[in-house]
């Protein structure tokens, strides 16, 4: 894939004549996106299904033509019925970039979802689907800047790609993950989460762990770390969670132009 990194806005003078609005927030994309890869459908073969929680499973695919991605990017996936009817959805990529020729998606079983419903009730290893991507450089993390990752529910999926990338490459750049789940049994990737992770449980929690919503107290010690160059914050989840978490970040002093949000929908 194209790994032509876009320089941070602070450092880059826009090309002369380029219009730049006189406003504070202008988060630049993190990478250039290859238009050809984004527009060509390719076959991905399901090779493995792993149960993560009662509602979510990970689907592993072999995609020989996959050109690679950066953590945080997503793809578009298409299913086709025998009368030609198609259904397509955007899904975040869960796996790290170095998983050669393979990609993993972690999907919630959405009530009445025609695509996630097929995956959770019908799909078996050997089945073929179509994907195109990777898409969008905005939520991508190349592993360069300190990353403060905040997700709820399956919003942890693109953030897990970043955590896995950080570990696989042995990166020194600081990375912290805050993840909110309703209950321990609904926490996706629970066994993989390590010392970098703050867990927040909103309905029920393990003995001795408080139950409650993500709050300023969860973020304060992380923001106080003040890594060199500052945190790049990545927020992913439902719109309600994204609004709440991004407001907490702003109130705690995180610059608006260092917050990237991916909302489900």
């Amino acid at each position: 894939m194209t790994e032509a990194f876009v320089a941070p806005s602070r450092a880059a003078a826009p090309p002369s004549g380029t219009f730049v609005p006189a406003t504070r927030f202008a988060v630049p994309g993190r990478i250039a996106v290859n238009g050809r890869q984004a527009s060509e459908w390719q076959t991905a073969t399901l090779t493995e299904i792993r149960r993560e929680t009662p509602l979510a499973s990970t689907f592993r695919f072999a995609a020989r033509a996959w050109a690679g991605h950066l953590p945080g990017q997503h793809l578009m996936l298409r299913l086709t019925a025998d009368d030609g009817y198609t259904a397509q959805r955007h899904y975040s990529i869960a796996s790290a970039p170095d998983d050669d020729g393979h990609i993993e998606l972690t999907l919630d079983h959405v009530d009445g979802g025609e695509v996630s419903g097929w995956f959770h009730t019908t799909a078996e290893p050997g089945d073929e689907v179509e994907v195109r991507g990777p898409l969008s450089g905005f939520f991508a993390w190349p592993g360069d800047r300190p990353a403060l990752l905040i997700g709820a529910g399956s919003g942890v999926v693109p953030l897990m790609s970043m955590v896995r990338h950080h570990r696989a490459r042995g990166l020194d750049v600081p990375l912290r993950l805050v993840v909110s789940a309703r209950a321990p049994e609904e926490l996706i990737y629970a066994r993989e989460l390590g010392a970098e992770t703050t867990r927040v449980f909103t309905r029920s929690a393990p003995l001795g762990v408080p139950v409650g919503r993500l709050g300023a107290a969860h973020l304060a010690p992380l923001l106080a770390e003040e890594p060199e160059g500052g945190w790049e914050a990545y927020v992913c989840g439902s719109n309600g969670f994204a609004e709440h978490a991004s407001r907490l970040l702003v109130e705690a002093g995180q610059p608006v132009d260092r917050i990237r949000i991916e909302r489900f929908g």
């Binding site: 086709t80 009817y85 198609t86 259904a87 025609e114 097929w118 799909a123």
Partner: peptide, 10 residues
């Protein structure tokens, strides 16, 4: 057309 096994859709 790449038909997805068992997919009927809405």
């Amino acid at each position: 057309m790449n038909v997805t096994r068992g997919f009927t859709g809405r």
